[in-house]
Design a protein around this nucleic acid. Sequence first.
DNA 1: ACTACGGTTGAATCCTGAA
DNA 2: GTTCAGGATTCAACCGTAG
Lengths: 224, 224
Amino acid sequence: MELNKIYNMDCLEGLKKLEDNSIDLIVTDPPYGMDFQSNYRKEKHIKIENDKDLSWLPTFLNQCNRVLKDNSHFYMCSSFHNLDYFMQEVKKIFELKNILVWVKNNTSMGDLEGDYAPQYEFILFIQKGRKKLNGTRKSNVLKYSRTGNKYHPTEKPLELIRFLLRNSSSKDDVVLDPFMGSGTTAVACKELDRKFIGYELEEEHFLTSEKRLNKVNKSLKIFT
Amino acid sequence: MELNKIYNMDCLEGLKKLEDNSIDLIVTDPPYGMDFQSNYRKEKHIKIENDKDLSWLPTFLNQCNRVLKDNSHFYMCSSFHNLDYFMQEVKKIFELKNILVWVKNNTSMGDLEGDYAPQYEFILFIQKGRKKLNGTRKSNVLKYSRTGNKYHPTEKPLELIRFLLRNSSSKDDVVLDPFMGSGTTAVACKELDRKFIGYELEEEHFLTSEKRLNKVNKSLKIFT
DNA sequence: ACTACGGTTGAATCCTGAA
DNA sequence: GTTCAGGATTCAACCGTAG
């Protein structure tokens, strides 16, 4: 498949078409299996279909393992709700090296009287073989504001994705994001001169990602 | 069993002697199942026996459920290493309401080149029935510095334990800590006028906890 | 029993208009 | 153009009630 392109298709189909040991790094933000749709922005975004279903996960992880090169990293976001299942399936195939905590600037809604307010998300830091991190040692607690434009209901900050790319890849490396969403990973790759490939099933988000990528073309790529 | 006392015994033995529905809140820091001992700690503290063994967990949780009153909270610390197992066993019996992240002021050791530096620990926030938290809404990210005095290798800050006690218990409530360690939970209870009961198998830690409790006697209990 | 829907905290950040 | 104050907005939910 062609590099530096996002395909409007299911990632399980797309993964099949990639060659063994062809990917340097995976960074992805899959559906968390929560059946989520926030009430106040109901009109803004389409609902994620079948989000409660996590049956895709084992097949997905096996494909990720196949396409990843030896001695590489793999970042996968998760909330705490199904973290136990995510961890167990990952541990069957990979080494679960760490769980990073992305601390947001503000809290979410939820149970207002009987629970603590959600202010973080997890990022599973997964290793195939053995690879060192670039640069100096960093904490596993990452603070990034949920700032900027809202292309996608669960969009991650560009700065956070750039941080992960810098730590675990080099110039011209091939980065895969099977759940591309609004294309944040692709944009960050373009900014940092990484090659990328990715899939997004929803046409609305797929079209958004193409628009965002075109904007990077025109910019100065100040982050290289 | 007598209240406001720590017993030098195995907690599985101790739990059996407690009556059904007699405890208002459980706050505890069990062995994480990592079989870890740093060189620094090796000189100062005894090794915890059978730390890799987590077979005690299901029985432990069943006993906790039995002794807890309806509509009560239960906090249990965990690292990420066996978090999946902790979560799954908890979910079989209780509602796993949230996972709190205790962010420390500094990072720990570990893999210096191939991993992010550990800077947090998890606290499973568990509910039996339905109970509201005291006071206004708080984040699930808790920032507390590690304590100055080191009575125990995995000692939690007094301030952190007081925070949990204030949120989930009231004056004269009975608080259980089955893994009392150096007695931090007992000390916090005494300061905040909660009743406590707890167990600690290691005689060295048990004796430390008695000394710490006597010191609180003499102090002014400024935190009530 | 189930489903659908309305209502809601508090704090960081963003926006807007005035000084 | 710049700063600042104050109002508006936003947030990978979950409870309770109505139907």
